[in-house]
Write a protein that binds this DNA or RNA. Structure first.
Lengths: 136, 136
DNA sequence: ATACTATTTGCAATTCTGTTGCAAGTGTTT
DNA sequence: AAACACTTGCAACAGAATTGCAAATAGTAT
């Protein structure tokens, strides 16, 4: 889907900043932090705008948070079926300890876990750390 | 094990600050952030001391990091067998979307995942989100 | 094409999180 | 009780993230 349609389908205006941020996400196949985005976009947009764009995208289900033990949060594009109502990102994430990049392992499903009674599960997140294909 | 023995067995001096921080961890059955600790202890110890105590405890295997999609890092007591050489915290964590607390599921092991060839795994982290026993 | 309105942006200021250097204080060992 | 290394508090700093507000812009209706 092209960038403008992604925005309008999620109820967001097609502004330069959002277009720019979304294009950066499309360009990389691993999760990006605010500072990654800032490095690419600081000439064009304000830091605060990038923060607000991230929030808007999270809110509308365009990106999701990638859990990671590093200090700063990282984000990646959702699969097409995500919306603000419902996320379908039930795959594992891999973080390379050498290059620091996090990628989505779209084909690795998070196995179903049986929890003690009384717990309701809504989402599972599996983060695997190690050395990635490129660094190995 | 009592607080003073935990400290000395992990090679740490038995100081007021460490005693105090460890007691707070014992008091709660969910993971605590620096700011949680600060709320309880700010009358007695400096912010920086709490940060340094967290680092010392992490280092010696008294607490482990609990990965969580919230902004700030959280920590919880390790099982007794952990040391600075070796952590044995291969359990899942549960984060309640209602109360926001994260707890250790000590009896739920993180499953072993087969990755595509080329990847080396060093550590796995499983975070399950939903509604906890108390909130349900 | 123009005008209107709600949304979005940039800037400045502020808050929160985490770290570092250093002098003073404390725990442990002898 | 003395000695030494470790620990603490303070002040300063660096980075991450949020907020209020005025100016700019997108989308819609005219």
């Amino acid at each position: 889907m092209d960038t403008e349609n992604i925005l309008s389908e999620h109820g967001l205006r097609n502004t330069e900043a959002r277009h720019g941020v979304l294009d950066v996400f499309k360009k990389y196949d691993y999760a990006l932090s605010h500072s990654d985005l800032e490095k690419e976009l600081q000439k064009y947009f304000d830091r605060v705008t990038i923060y607000r764009t991230i929030h808007a995208f999270l809110d509308k289900g365009i990106i999701h948070k990638v859990i990671d033990d590093s200090e700063s949060a990282k984000y990646a594009l959702c699969a097409d079926e995500c919306s603000s109502d419902r996320h379908h990102d039930n795959h594992a994430h891999f973080k390379c300890t050498k290059c620091g990049n996090s990628e989505c392992l779209n084909h690795v499903q998070v196995p179903n876990i049986n929890l003690p009674s009384g717990y309701l599960v809504s989402e599972s997140n599996l983060l695997i750390e190690g050395v990635c294909k490129s660094c190995n």
